[in-house]
Design a protein around this nucleic acid. Structure first.
Lengths: 207, 207
DNA sequence: TTTACTTTCAAACAAGCGTTTGATATGTTG
DNA sequence: CAACATATCAAACGCTTGTTTGAAAGTAAA
C-alpha cells in the first residue's frame, strides 16, 4: 500500500475523472492533464496505471447502463408499442439528463462522428446490440413485413430523432435559448418521438 | 501584382483548400499546415491573408447552396407534401453525396456538436432559416394545427433523421460495411425519411 | 533608378500535447 | 535489518499546434 491514496483509489479516481472529461470534451478535446487535475493525481499517473490515454479510454468505457436498459426493456411485459415508448424515454434520459449517472454513456455519443481507437469496441459492444434491439421492436410493431433494408432505415429514423437532441445541443441552445432540457421537457420530447415513430410504423404495417 | 501566383489566387486557393480540410476533419482536427500544403502556399499565408485560422473559417463558410436549395423549394409549384420530399432529397444529397459541390455545407454539420468561434454565424445564417423553412412546410402539411413546441419537435424529427446518416457515418461503416452511400442509396434513404415523416405528420393532421 | 508597397518564404517562437524519466517515499517480504 | 516491489511526483522530452518574424523577390509609382 501507499499513503493517503490507498493504492487502487487513484486508479478509480482517474477513471471517474476521465468519464467526466471525455463526455464533456470528447476524446481529442480532453487532455490528460485536465483528467489528472480533476482526479488530484500526477500527470504521469495515467501512463503508469493505463499505459496511455487510449488505455484509459478503454477502461473508462462502460456499457452497463445501456445493457441494463435493454435487459429491463426485454423483461417488460407490455406490448411492443409500449416497450418502444419506454425505450425511447430511457434512452433520451440517458442522453440528456444531467442528473443521471449516464456520463459513461454520453462519452460514446461524443465519439460517434470522430473515430477514436475505441470506436470499434463501442460499435461492436454497444451500438450493434442497440440496433438489434430496436430492429426487433420494429419487427414486432410492423408484424415483420419489412425487409432488412427497410427495417434498418426505420431503426435509423428512430435513433436519428433521439441523437439529434444530443448532437445538436450547442446549436439548439443558440437558436432557442429558452429551451431547457429539464426532466419534464425530456419526457415530453421522448413522447413526441414515440408518437411520431409509431404513427410512421403503423402506416408501414397497413401498407 | 506578384509572381506566378497572381496575388488574389493564393487567397482563393486557401479558401478552397480550407473547405476541403475543414469538412474532412472539422475545425479542431484541421491544421493550418495541411490547408497550406493543399493550397501550395506557405504556412504564413493563412495569417497574412486572414489574420488567423478563425478568420479563414469565417471566410470559408458559404451558405449559398443551402440558400439556393430553399429558394428552389419555395419556387416549386408542387403541394407541400411533394415539396418536403424534394427538400429531404436535396438535403441528403448535400450531406452525403461525395460528388456534389457541397463541401462548404458539410463543414457546418461537422461543427454542430463542437462549438467553434463561427458557430453563432452558422446557427443564425444557415440553420435558423432551415428550421423556419421546414416549420412552414410542416404547418402546410398539418394544416396549421400544431402549436409552436409541437411544430418545432416535428422539424427536429425530420432533421434528426437526415443528419443521423452524416453524424453516424463512421459507426454505420463499421456495422454495415456493405452499406455504400452512392447516389441511388442516398435517394432511397431520402425517400424513406420522407415516407416516414409524412406518415407521422398525416397522423398529426387527423388527430 | 529610387522609393514604397505587396506578397512569399524559411525559420523560429511560444504554448500545448501525450509520454518518459529518475528520484523519492512507502509498504511488503526475505 | 536489508532487499524488493509499488506508487507518486517534479521535471523534462519530443512533437505538433497556431502564429510571428525578418529577409527576399516582385511590382508600381515618383
Amino acid at each position: 500500500m501507499n499513503d493517503a491514496g490507498c493504492a487502487e483509489q487513484t486508479r478509480e479516481r482517474l477513471i471517474e475523472a476521465a468519464r467526466e472529461v471525455f463526455s464533456e470534451h470528447g476524446f481529442q478535446g480532453a487532455t490528460v492533464r485536465e483528467i489528472c487535475r480533476r482526479a488530484d493525481a500526477n500527470v504521469a499517473a495515467v501512463n503508469y496505471h493505463f499505459g496511455s490515454k487510449d488505455g484509459l479510454l478503454a477502461e473508462a468505457l462502460n456499457f452497463n447502463q445501456l445493457k441494463a436498459m435493454q435487459a429491463a426493456n426485454l423483461a417488460a411485459t407490455s406490448c411492443a408499442e409500449q416497450r418502444l415508448r419506454l425505450f425511447i424515454r430511457d434512452f433520451m434520459l440517458m442522453l440528456l439528463d444531467e442528473n443521471s449517472a449516464s456520463r459513461q454513456c454520453r462519452m460514446m455519443a461524443r465519439e460517434l462522428a470522430d473515430p477514436t481507437p475505441a470506436l470499434d469496441k463501442i460499435a461492436r459492444e454497444a451500438i450493434a446490440p442497440l440496433h438489434e434491439h430496436l430492429g426487433a421492436l420494429v419487427d414486432a410493431i410492423t408484424g415483420g413485413t419489412l425487409d432488412d433494408a427497410e427495417r434498418r432505415r426505420c431503426v435509423f429514423s428512430i435513433l436519428g430523432q433521439c441523437t439529434f437532441y444530443y448532437h445538436g445541443e450547442p446549436v439548439l441552445q443558440r437558436l432557442y435559448p429558452e429551451l431547457r432540457f429539464r426532466r419534464d421537457e425530456i419526457e415530453a420530447t421522448a413522447a413526441h418521438i414515440a408518437d411520431f415513430s409509431l404513427a410512421a410504423l403503423a402506416a408501414r404495417k397497413s401498407a
